[in-house]
Simulated scan of single mutants.
Amino acid sequence: MSFARLGVAFVAATTAFAAPAFAQSQIDDPECVAPANPGGGFDLTCRIAQTGLEPHVSEPVQVTFMPGGIGAVAYNLFNTTRTDDGSAIVAFSTGSLLNIVTGKCGDFTEKDVRWVGTAGADFGAVVVREDSEYPDLAGLMADFSADPSSVVVGAGGSVGSQDWMKGALLLREADASPMDMRYVAFDGGGDAIAVLLGGSIEVYMGDVGEMVPHIDAGQMRILAVMSPERLEAPFAEVPTAMEQGFDVEWTILRGFYMGGEVSDEDYQAWVDASPPPTRPRNSPPSSKSGACCR
Rank of each mutant, 00 (worst) to 15 (best):
Q50I: 02
G52V: 08
L53K: 08
E54R: 14
P55D: 00
G68S: 12
G69S: 08
G69K: 07
I70N: 15
G71R: 04
G71P: 03
A72G: 09
A72D: 10
N76C: 08
N76V: 08
L77K: 13
R82A: 11
T83K: 15
T83P: 00
D84H: 04
D84E: 14
D85P: 02
D85R: 06
S93V: 03
T94C: 06
K104C: 00
C105F: 01
T109H: 02
E110M: 05
E110H: 11
K111M: 02
D112F: 02
R114F: 07
W115K: 04
V116W: 07
V116Y: 06
V116Q: 11
G117L: 05
G117I: 05
A119G: 09
A119N: 05
D122Q: 10
F123W: 14
A125L: 08
V126D: 14
V127D: 11
R129M: 03
D131T: 13
E133W: 03
Y134A: 09
P135Y: 00
A142P: 09
D143L: 01
F144D: 12
V151T: 09
V152C: 04
V153Y: 07
V153W: 10
V153R: 00
A155Q: 11
G156K: 07
G157E: 05
G157H: 02
G157W: 03
S158H: 09
S158M: 08
V159A: 06
G160R: 03
W164S: 05
K166D: 05
G167Y: 03
A168Q: 04
A168K: 01
L171R: 09
A176I: 01
